[in-house]
Simulated scan of single mutants.
Amino acid sequence: MKTALFFRNFNEIEFSKLEKGSCVFIGNEGCIYKLPCKDELQQLKKSDETIEIHLITPLVSQTNLQLAKDRIDELISSKLIASITFNDYGLFYYTADNHKDSGVKYYLGRLLTKSFSECPWSDHLNRNEDEHVQKYMNGFVMNDPRKIKLFQDMGVTGVHLSVNKKNIAGLNEISERGLDIIVHLDTIIGAASRICSQAQYHDVKYPDCKEKCEQPAVLKLSRLWSLKEDGYIEPSEEVKQVVPQYIVAGNITYYRNPDYNFLIDRSDSIKYGIVDYTFNRPQFNR
């Protein structure tokens, strides 16, 4: 497994901390306005020619689809990127159709490879199911040989996964089908929306939302609504153990992966292990 750093925007990068031959994933899983431009990637490459640059593209609304297409065209033509990760089928189809011989690798992102087991309380939701049904539910949407072949025929060489102890069998199955496995070691996506949660909460629009987005909000469970009590009550210790602390960054809600060490011990099947720079800043440390 090769360790990589994930930066949600260019301004986060601390060039002095990048080692020779560093692997950098840059972009955003939710916000189109966070896509880096050609000049920024040139600056990154200029700092060290051996840096391996991978682009992560977001969920894209119809309004911003042309913006995303233009940026993809620009960055592929720059020949600065090793791969593009897609979290939007429309943008992927456009790129696969228009840049067939670019030499850039195509990966599917976490918004397109979801697993039921990414829900922190999935065990409580499927506990009455048969064992084989639980195994199926805990797999990824990519655990289908026909689907894997379809995407491989379109040029996909790997997938980003949010992996935990419950879905490790799904990871192994996908790996056996010949796809590269890229695992986000520290975070799991809890939810995603086409509407930016932080912009909506603060009642701002782009570009005024930028500062809010770059300071992710922390959500903690404080009280529960009880039908029996007809009001809010303190959560039990059992509930507190199940419900994680969430971090909202733009229109994506994340939580810490509790199985980080489990993944490190199984690194042989992982091509890239991604460390999230944003959530490893001091205010988000465990």
Rank of each mutant, 00 (worst) to 15 (best):
D153T: 14
S193R: 12
S197C: 13
L171F: 02
D144A: 07
L227W: 14
N257L: 07
P207N: 04
P244W: 00
V218P: 08
K205S: 09
E237R: 15
L227F: 13
S193I: 11
M137S: 03
I181K: 05
G158I: 09
I233A: 09
S162R: 09
Q152W: 03
E234W: 10
Y232H: 09
D259Y: 04
H184T: 12
I189K: 02
V163C: 01
A199H: 05
L227Q: 12
H160W: 03
I188A: 00
E211K: 15
L179M: 07
G178Y: 08
E214A: 04
D203I: 15
K240T: 13
D180A: 15
L219E: 11
N138W: 02
Q200H: 15
V141D: 00
F140M: 06
S236F: 09
P235V: 05
P216V: 11
G170C: 04
A169W: 12
D230P: 12
K210R: 12
K220S: 13
I181D: 00
K228N: 15
H202W: 10
I168E: 00
T187V: 13
G158D: 01
A199S: 14
V243E: 01
N251Y: 01
P258S: 08
V218E: 07
W225S: 14
P235N: 07
L219T: 10
P216E: 06
D186A: 03
V239C: 06
W225A: 13
S175Q: 11
G250L: 10
N167M: 02
A249C: 11
I233C: 13
M142Q: 08
H132A: 07
M137Y: 02
V239S: 09
Y260R: 13
Q134F: 11
C196V: 08
Q215R: 14
S162E: 10
H132M: 08
K165A: 07
K220M: 11
A169S: 12
V141W: 01
Q200T: 12
P244C: 08
F140I: 12
N257A: 06
D203R: 14
G139C: 01
V141G: 04
A199N: 14
M137T: 09
A249D: 05
C209I: 07
H202I: 11
F140S: 05
M142V: 05
Y201Q: 12
D259W: 06
D180H: 06
N257G: 02
A191Y: 05
R146L: 14
S193Y: 04
E237I: 15
D208K: 15
V243G: 00
D153W: 12
E237C: 05
Q152S: 12
V243W: 03
L161A: 06
D230H: 14
P258G: 07
K210M: 11
D144C: 14
D180F: 04
V243S: 07
G158C: 13
N251H: 01
I168K: 05
Q134T: 05
V218N: 03
E234H: 08
L185A: 01
E131V: 06
I148S: 03
S162W: 00
Q241R: 05
E173D: 10
N172E: 12
K212P: 02
K205E: 11
A199G: 15
V183S: 00
T157Y: 01
V248L: 12
D259N: 15
